[in-house]
Simulated assay, not measured.
Amino acid sequence: MKKAVVLLSGGLDSTTCMSVAHKAGYELYPLSFDYGQRHQRELEAAKAVAQYYKVKEHRLIKIEHVGGSALTDASIQVPDYTEDGQIPVTYVPARNILFLSYALGYGEVMGAEAIFIGISSVDYSGYPDCRPEFLQAFQKVVDVGTKAGVSGQTIAIKAPLLYLSKGETIQLAAENGAPLHHTTSCYRGGEKACGTCDSCTLRLKGFAEAGIKDPIDYVNQGDRSCFSTPLED
Rank of each mutant, 00 (worst) to 15 (best):
L204T: 02
F116A: 04
L162V: 07
A45Q: 04
R41E: 14
F116Y: 15
G211A: 11
E191W: 08
I76M: 15
K2F: 00
F116K: 02
T82W: 07
I170C: 03
I170D: 02
K54F: 00
I61S: 07
S199E: 02
Q40N: 12
V142Q: 06
V144H: 12
V20K: 01
G222V: 06
K47N: 09
G145S: 13
G111T: 03
M110V: 08
Y52I: 03
Q221M: 15
G167Q: 04
R41C: 10
P179W: 06
Q37H: 05
I170N: 02
K23S: 14
N96L: 03
A178R: 01
F227C: 12
K62W: 10
K213G: 08
K140C: 10
S32N: 02
C226Y: 14
R41T: 11
I155E: 02
D129R: 03
K166L: 00
A173R: 02
I216H: 10
A21Y: 04
P160I: 01
A50H: 01
I157W: 00
E133M: 06
G206K: 06
Y218R: 08
T82I: 11
G10C: 04
R203Y: 11
D198V: 07
L180E: 00
R188D: 01
A70F: 03
D129S: 07
T184D: 07
D123M: 10
S125W: 12
D34V: 02
S151F: 04
E27V: 05
M1R: 13
K213F: 09
Y106A: 07
C200D: 04
G190P: 00
T201S: 14
V78K: 09
G118N: 04
P128R: 10
C200F: 04
C186Q: 03
D233S: 14
L31I: 09
Q51N: 15
A137Y: 10
T184W: 10
D217C: 13
A103E: 01
G10A: 07
N96I: 07
I157G: 01
V55F: 00
I87S: 11
Y127S: 08
F134H: 11
S120P: 03
C194N: 04
Q77I: 15
I117L: 13
K213V: 15
I61Y: 09
G67Y: 06
L100Y: 02
S228R: 15
Q221H: 14
P79T: 07
T90G: 07
C17E: 10
H182T: 11
H181I: 10
N96M: 05
E44S: 14
D34H: 11
V20W: 02
Y163F: 12
R95K: 11
K213D: 15
E44C: 04
L7D: 00
Y187P: 01
L231I: 13
A210I: 05
S225I: 06
K205R: 14
S165L: 04
S14A: 10
V92P: 01
S120T: 13
F116T: 06
G10R: 01
A137E: 13
Q171C: 08
K47I: 05
Y81S: 11
C130V: 14
D129M: 03
H182K: 15
H65V: 14
E175F: 07
V219W: 07
A174W: 09
C226F: 13
D198K: 08
L31C: 05
E191V: 11
R38H: 06
L8I: 08
C194L: 05
I87A: 10
G10E: 00
N176R: 12
K3F: 00
T72I: 08
T90S: 11
L172H: 10
